[in-house]
Design a binder for these strands. Sequence first.
DNA 1: GTGTCGCATTCGCCTTTGTAAACA
DNA 2: CTGTTTACTTTGGCGAATGCGACA
Length: 974
Amino acid sequence: MKVTCESDNGNPSGSIHDAGTLAGISQEGVNKLLRRANRRGSSRKEEKNEYLQKNDPKTNEQVVHTMIVQNASMAEGCSRNAVGSSQLEVDVGSYVDNLFDDSEDMNDSDWEDGSIPKLDPVDNSPKERMKGLTIEFDEPSGSAGRKPVRRASAEDKEIAELVHKVHLLCLLARGRLIDNACDDPLIQASLLSLVPTHLSKISGVSNITSNALSPLVTWFHNNFHVRSLVRAERSFHTALAFALETREGTPEEIAALSVALFRALKFTARFVSILDVASLKPEADKCEPSSQEANRVGGGIFSTSTLMVANPKEVSSSSYPVKSFSCSEKDGHCENSLRSSCKSKGGCPTSNDTQSRYSTAVDEVTDRTSNLFACQAQLDTYGQCAPTKSQGLKRKGDLEFEMQLAMAISATTVGTLENSAGSLDVSNFNGNNSLDASTPSKRWKKIHRVESATSSQGLSTALGSRKVGSPLFWAEVYCGGENLTGKWVHVDALNAIIDGEQKVEDAAAACKTALRYVVAFAGRGAKDVTRRYCMKWYKIAPKRVNSIWWDAVLAPLRELESGATGGTINMEKLHNNASNEQEKIKASGMSEYPGTDSPSNHVILPEKSGQEAFKEYGSKSEVESSTKHSLVATRNSLEDMELETRALTEPLPTNQQAYKNHALYALERWLTKCQILHPRGPILGYCSGHPVYPRTCVQTLKPRERWLREGLQVKGNEIPAKVLKRSAKLKKVQVSEEDDYEEIDSKGTIELYGKWQLEPLCLPHAVDGIVPKNERGQVDVWSEKCLPPGTVHLRLPRVFSVAKRLEIDYAPAMVGFEFRNGRAAPIFDGIVVCSEFKDAILEAYAEEEERRVAEEKKRNEAQAISRWYQLLSSIITRQKLKSYYGDGSSSQASRNIQDKNNEINAPDESSKDDRQSTGLWKGDGEDTLCNIPSGTLVEDHEHVFLRENESFDAENSVRTKRCHCGFSIQVEEL
DNA sequence: GTGTCGCATTCGCCTTTGTAAACA
DNA sequence: CTGTTTACTTTGGCGAATGCGACA
């Protein structure tokens, strides 16, 4: 192993390995760091590689890690500069952690705070700090091939979930803003004025079909183009108006315009967006696509303004041809490719600008732009974009989250930013109606620079970056002429695709966009319509947030949305349609299996949903109550049913592992040890020869004791549904304690029971004031259900003493266990007593507590007085000693010792008279108050209290003693 | 290049009912 | 003498989740 240090000018200024034994210390340190690096895992390469220099490939047997460590100023400069120093070379292959953290406790914060290299242990002089250091070491030959693994901890997961949730909320807010902008009458009117007369004839057609929309969509597609311009510094409303003016805009704006157009034409339309949130799983966003992939995605797909559709003729039948484009416009979409590659290659969406929270924006924009160019230069040079240390700590999800947060904030603060940033374009929009795609290039360039700087920092979700080309926004139009009852039709006017809902998933997947949340916005509300676009729900379900939380979030938005889009449907049609759906379910083998919770039970029956809808929207609906089938359902409930049906008719996965946590299906081999199939059937199909069962047949088993905690007990004569062998550890205990083999066998197993073998818990009743107890003389109170009838649980501290004093029968309440001293210890909380004694005990407890509190107060006061006494005695003694021996510094130490000795001896009656102090103290049997005129303490004088100067206040029993100097002391005689 | 499967590894849940000495 | 507090020894086994490599 070799360790060398280099100064910043390149000359070796010192070598650790020269320091004799220090070499060993250093080696140990390096090895420690290596171990640590191995633990941390390869996924954090980007966080650390700023400290690394590329390996020398010439060394064969030896893996050489060379690092150039920046000094403090360099490190700061690096963090200021988005790209970092050009001296940095990034080693992608192997790396080590902060090799220069020589302290023993190299904790995470040291690393993550970006601490600069510490001093060489040999040389403590700051002037001699190393600016560069080269370390070479041997790597164990066996470990070369294995990548270290570090999994996310629970904390990581929690943080990731929080980020995910907040990101979702931001995107929801964003979607609502866009939806609101789509309702703008001015924009709608402007759009209408652009539509050719022959196309506007379809306005208001009640039973429109998707085919009828084709000409309109084609026209829109031909007239509105995507341009990768983001005007984040203005409100979305303004941006939308500008996009309408120029007929060019971001995919988001163009999609919003299409929605506005449909609404202008009196169609019921929604703005639909994929909420491309930060991953729910930690570190999932860190592994960006490879540079090749980035090139492919960035340069290949998002390259023309007519995204993804080569020929308008393909309307209605085209798919998303995601790989068939080339870069053709320099100003427009090549920018995206650059941005994408910059981001993807190095994970470098311009470092500390990213951390600046994007709050002020305009004056920062120039910095960002320069950073972008710097990043670009870096890419040209190295093919890598070295992140700064602080940047490295940011996960991509965090960055996206921050950007979205900033966007949501900026979008919601309409008006404020408009004033400041609007000067860029708004005047043009307002005053110059002739602006179109032929806008002077200078002006475009300005916008373009603003956009590129902003988007280069990771604005992927709403604005497209890595996931360029992915269908993120489109419209849904309600076509009453479709499907008997009408249906929501996917309309991607951006790409001139109608009714292509089945292609969205594949197109998104091709662009590495996870289709986890597809949300439709209307009426300032929102509805999750992911099911419509997702064919393999089991794949995305684990990537979605807890459904309870998500449903709760969406609940109010759903009401708004259904209020805006909820038309009425003739129930007769609906019934026929639903029957067809039911038949589909039956055909797929999903219905009517004998399980207790058959999936078919989850299907909302037409009658039921219709009635519910009637209750909810009865006032608005056209009610025809004369016949059974003439109930009115809303589009909303109909759509709910459609989505629900989709959820229940998911095709069987072809790979076994998909069944592991599948919501609908299960394979026996993937059941856990506490799960069982009950009933064992029906078999819905086969996967690799294994029968597939409905998930509803999977029952969770628990031991008898565990069911007791839930207030359930096993019915009599029930045999265990499953018997597990006890762990080896417990068996050992059994073997050591028991010699009888049969006993071992009976205790060496765990008997498990299923829900169907249970009944409500029947505990013995409390009789004659006696609490039924278990064999340990206590009551296990896991929940209220575990309390014997006729008893109550009093969770009060020290209440047992009251019950004991009143001679009332009680039992300690054991509420759980904790691990203490390496063993499980029961936790007791309060007592269980018969209900009839509850009031008496509570009353006595209150009295007892009152008394206890009073006693405690008294005790505290006594303690306080005692401490005052000690304080005052020490002051007095100190003063006394001062007066005896003067204030000579040489004897200070001995006086201190004497003080302490005197403190120990105090109080004694003789010394009380000599006390000089302020305040009140209480001695044994008397309280004393000292009144000291100012300056008394500094007077070199011993007080003398003469009898004749005393006075006594009989009313208060206070005797006042006075010295001739004016000092007085009050003594309360008890 | 992608999907599937098996193996290895890591993380985190589940387990679950003292005692003797010192001190007040 | 009795009741209370404190120190002692400070889990660890196992299943689920996950990552990775091999293979089709």
